[in-house]
Amino acid sequence: MRSHKLFLSALLVLVLAFTSVLFVAHAQDASGAGLTIGFAQVGSESAWRTAFSDAVKAEAEARGINLLFSDGQQKQENQIAALRSFIAQGVDGIILAPVVETGWDDVLQEAADNSIPVVVVDRNVTADESLFVTRVSSDFVHEGRLAAAWLVQATAGKCDIVELQGTVGSSAALDRQQGFNEVIALFTDMQIIASQSGDFTRTNGKEVMESFLNSIDPATICAVWAHNDDMLIGAIEAMKEAGIDPGQDILTISVDAIPDIFKAMMDGDANATVELSPNMGGPAFDAIVAAINGETLPRWIPVAGGIYFPDTAAEEYARRGGQ
C-alpha cells in the first residue's frame, strides 16, 4: 500500500515539474492562466487589507491562476518563511505585500537565484532594485491631488480648509498632504487654516475636529480635508454634536472609500471620497507575466483609485459589503 502511494506521489511530482517546465519554456499568454503564484500578504488588520486580499484572490480566480495565499499576521518572519516555502515549491512568481521596508535582501536574493520574479505591492521595500521586478502601489500623492481638485471645483477655488492629518511621519499622510497642497497652492483663495494629526482613527479625528470647532469660528470653515475616511467619520460626529450639518455647512473630502463613508454619503453627511484602490492584483499579475516573458517594466506601477460621490453611494455601499 505504502509503496503504491509513494510511487503515485512521485509520479505526480514529476508530472507537475514537467508541466511547469513546459509552461516556463513557452511564452505566457497575457492573462497568466495556469501559473502558480505565491502571495505573501501582511495580514488582515483592516477592512481595506481584507478587501485587498479578496480582490487579489478574485482576480487570480478569474484569470485561472493558481494562487498560494499566505497571511503573515503582521510579522516579517512569517512573511519570509512564506517566501522561502514559495521558492521551495518552485512557484512561477511571487507577490509580496511587505509589512516593513527593510530586511528583505536575503530572501529576495534566494528568489532571484531561483529565477522567480517578485513583484512588491502596496508598501515599499529598501532592497537592491535588481532583486524585484517592480512595485505596484497606490499613488498617495495622486490621491491628494484628486481630493484637492474636487474641492477646487466644488468651491470655485475659494475655501478655508481644516486638515486632519494621518499619523505623523507615515508615507500616506506625507504624500497625500503634498499632493493636496500642490494643487491648492495654485489658488490664492484656498488655504489650510488649521491642521492637526488625528492618527488615522475615528476617536482622534473627532477630538481634533472638536478642538477646531472650539478654537475657530465654525462659520468660517468651508471644508474639512481628512487623510482617511475613519478620521472624517469621527469629525462628522463632532460637527453634528456642535450643531453643524456636515456635507452642507462644512464640505468633506477624504481618502480610502471604506463602506462606512458611503453610508455617511447616503445620510448626506459626506461629499466625496477618493478610493485607495485595493485592486492591485491585476497589475501585479500582469507584471509577473511580463517579467516571465522577458519584458522590461517601469520601476513603479501606480494604481489610481477613482473619486466617489453621493450619487453612487448606495450602490458602492452594497458592493463593498456594507450592512
Binding site: F200, T201, R202, T203, N204, K206, D230, I233, D260
Partner: peptide, 16 residues
Amino acid sequence: IITTDIKGADANNAGL
C-alpha cells in the same frame, strides 16, 4: 464611552 462616542468599536485603536 470611547466606542459609543464614535458609534463604532475600533479594535486596533480604541484605548491604544
